[in-house]
Design a binder for these strands. Sequence first.
DNA 1: CGCAGATGAGACATGAATGTCTCATCCAAG
DNA 2: CTTGGATGAGACATTCATGTCTCATCTGCG
Lengths: 198, 198
Amino acid sequence: MSHLRYSRLMAVDRDQVLRSAAALLTRRSTATMDEVAKAAGISRATLHRQFAGRDALVRALEALCIAECEAALAAARPDEGPAVDAVRRLIAEIEPNAPLLAFLYSENQLFEGEEQNEGWARIDERVAALFTRGQAGGEFRIDLTPAWLTEALYGLLASAAWAVAEGRVAPKDFTHMIAELLFGGVLRRDDPAPRKES
Amino acid sequence: MSHLRYSRLMAVDRDQVLRSAAALLTRRSTATMDEVAKAAGISRATLHRQFAGRDALVRALEALCIAECEAALAAARPDEGPAVDAVRRLIAEIEPNAPLLAFLYSENQLFEGEEQNEGWARIDERVAALFTRGQAGGEFRIDLTPAWLTEALYGLLASAAWAVAEGRVAPKDFTHMIAELLFGGVLRRDDPAPRKES
DNA sequence: CGCAGATGAGACATGAATGTCTCATCCAAG
DNA sequence: CTTGGATGAGACATTCATGTCTCATCTGCG
């Protein structure tokens, strides 16, 4: 049946469009549908055939980001080994998606009363669970709530992604900067923050 | 001369309008000029007479925020005593303006190529100088650049302000959460993070 | 009282982005 | 070759926020 190949081709195109849209909106968060279409090398009509509107496009980007964050979460093996190392792995895994995450993070403020994608809640939960595990295992201090640590991690990821995009910090320092600040804080100590991984 | 009283009254009204606009835009970043006017209890015409347009309004809010951040910076006495305490004072002083800061922080992404208010550069510089002082004095670790620490502080302030607005964390923990994470990091230690102030 | 200045209400035009539509073209499968 | 499906180009209407304008009203002051 031809419509099977059709579906498959559409899926491929859709993903390519989504990627280029992510790349563009990451830089220019107010880009119009016209610009998105041009950036993807397709016409606005085709873009509209794949995504009912700008809203649908952003929702699709949200779904993509959620999927990749969940993949990152899985790849980071959050239940394995010391929580410190798991968080470090998580940051490293999320790094490629940090710009998109930052875009959606600020875009969410526009989704005022509208329903939030429940995917974020799932991710929040798993990240918070990782921090909780670290606290239970005695690795992390217990006077900062997992909810705040999760929120702070998002904030640091977004800040770092933005700082890198603006050229204020070097891209190669991304993971190290976030992890070091998150783990060790800014205070100098005689007992430096332990490095469980290389 | 009547126009003197007029100027004074305008100034007062202008400030009131600015405050209510800040309060509204902090919650609904996409509020229209109509909503801003209604929130301020004036008509859209009068709002337009005081601020040429939405752009001018945001610029005015930016100027207000910069002024208050500089006031907070001054009140925090960044050159006085241990840098740790100075940063803690700074966070506490900025706290009331954190929501507005968070709004402008995300709004800045829309000011793509446009000129940035040089006030932010001044503030960045002074905050970075505070971190540099802490590093020079041996209080802060030197493997994280002052530029990144400054950026991270903004990110944490914005994250915390948003988390508080969303009801995910308690408002009273604001300063403590940020300071503790920024200073001590998340790792538990035998030697806890020193508390120079209460 | 009479006036000047400020305000509120609302009409109106503008511009931008969006969503919808049609039509010509192209391409690959039959 | 022929045809169905996808595409690109572009016209078109719609919506929404904005910016500008006018006019009636109100208020304080002389």
